[in-house]
C-alpha cells in the first residue's frame, strides 16, 4: 500500500500554493523555450509534417530536441524506425533524470510517478531537482513538480500551435530563407555547448564523420557520426585528465 499522503488530507489549500510556486519558478525557463516551440511548429509545417502529427509530437512526445531532430529527418525522407531509434539515442540522457528523481518520488503512487516522469523535460527536471534538494523531506514537493510540468506542457503546446498557425497563415514565409531555418536553429542550439576542448573535439569529429558516412543507407551515417563524436569526446576528456595529473606530480 502507498503511504497516506499527509498533505492531501491536512492542507488542501497548500497544494495549490505549491502547484503555483512550481509554475512560477519554471517561468524563466519557459521564456527561453518559447522561441523553440514557435520555431518547431513553423519548421514542422514547412517540412511537410501534418498539423495533427506536429501537435501529436508536442502532446505525446514532449521532448524538444528530439522533436527538432525528427523534423530534420522527415525533411530528408527518413524511414520512421530510424527516426524512433534516433529519438531513443537523443533522449537517453533522460535516464539520468529518472535515476536522480527515484529517491524523491519514493512513496508516491504509481499514477504520480507515471505523470511526473512523463513531464521530466530538461526544464522541469532542473527546477524540480533544485526544490527537492533544497527542501528535502518537505511534504507536497510533488505538487510543486506537477505545477512546473503542467505550466511547461501547456506553454510548449501553445507555442507549437502558434508556430503552426504562423507557418500556415503566411505561406510566403517558406520563400524567405526557411530552407535554411533548420540549420540556423541547430547551429544556435549547438554553439552554447562548445565550452570545453572535449566538446569541441566531439562536435568536430561528428561533423567530419557525418560527411564521410553520408553515403550509408537509411541515414545510418547519423548514428555512426554520433557514436564517433561521443567516443572522441570521452577520449579527449581522458587524455586531458591524465595530462593534468602528470602536471601536478
Amino acid at each position: 500500500m502507498n503511504q497516506p499522503d499527509t498533505i492531501d488530507t491536512i492542507f488542501p489549500v497548500r497544494r495549490s500554493v505549491l502547484f503555483l510556486e512550481g509554475a512560477k519558478d519554471t517561468f524563466p525557463l519557459i521564456v527561453g523555450a518559447i522561441p523553440f516551440g514557435i520555431i518547431f511548429g513553423t519548421l514542422a509545417a514547412t517540412a511537410g509534417i501534418s498539423f495533427a502529427a506536429t501537435m501529436g509530437l508536442s502532446i505525446f512526445v514532449f521532448a524538444g530536441s528530439s522533436q527538432f531532430v525528427c523534423v530534420g529527418l522527415v525533411a530528408v525522407g527518413t524511414a520512421w524506425p530510424m527516426i524512433v531509434l534516433t529519438t531513443f539515442v537523443v533522449n537517453l540522457r533522460h535516464l539520468l533524470y529518472g535515476a536522480t528523481m527515484v529517491p524523491f518520488y519514493k512513496g508516491l503512487s504509481r499514477a504520480w510517478k507515471v505523470v511526473l516522469s512523463f513531464g521530466l523535460t530538461d526544464e522541469t527536471f532542473a527546477v524540480a531537482v533544485n526544490r527537492y534538494t533544497r527542501m528535502a523531506g518537505s511534504p507536497g514537493n510533488h505538487y510543486y513538480n506537477l505545477g512546473s510540468m503542467v505550466f511547461m506542457y501547456l506553454s510548449w503546446n501553445l507555442c507549437t500551435l502558434l508556430g503552426l498557425t504562423a507557418g500556415r497563415a503566411f505561406p510566403e514565409i517558406s520563400e524567405w530563407g526557411l530552407d535554411f531555418a533548420m540549420p540556423a536553429t541547430f547551429i544556435g542550439i549547438v554553439l552554447p555547448y562548445l565550452v570545453s576542448k572535449p566538446m569541441w573535439a566531439s562536435v568536430v569529429t561528428a561533423g567530419v564523420v557525418s560527411i564521410l558516412s553520408a553515403g550509408l543507407p537509411h541515414k545510418l551515417g547519423l548514428m555512426v557520426a554520433a557514436v564517433a563524436g561521443v567516443a572522441v569526446g570521452l577520449l579527449c576528456e581522458r587524455v586531458l585528465s591524465k595530462k593534468q595529473k602528470t602536471a601536478k606530480n
Binding site: 530536441s65 527538432f68 531532430v69 530534420g72 529527418l73 530528408v76 534516433t86 539515442v89 537523443v90 537517453l92 540522457r93 535516464l95 539520468l96 535515476a99 533548420m182 540549420p183 541547430f186 547551429i187 542550439i189 549547438v190 555547448y193 562548445l194 572535449p198 566538446m199 566531439s202 562536435v203 561528428a206 561533423g207 567530419v208 564523420v209 557525418s210 560527411i211 553520408a214 551515417g221 547519423l222 557520426a225 554520433a226 563524436g229 561521443v230 569526446g233 570521452l234 576528456e237
Partner: peptide
C-alpha cells in the same frame, strides 16, 4: 550506471544535431 556512460550522454545532443547540420550545409 557506469560513470563512462553518464559522461558520454552529455555529448549526445550537440553531436547528433551537428551530424544533421553538416551534411545539409556542405
Amino acid at each position: 550506471f557506469p560513470d563512462l556512460f553518464e559522461r558520454g550522454l552529455r555529448y549526445v545532443p550537440p553531436v547528433v544535431l551537428t551530424a544533421i547540420i553538416v551534411p545539409s550545409v556542405l
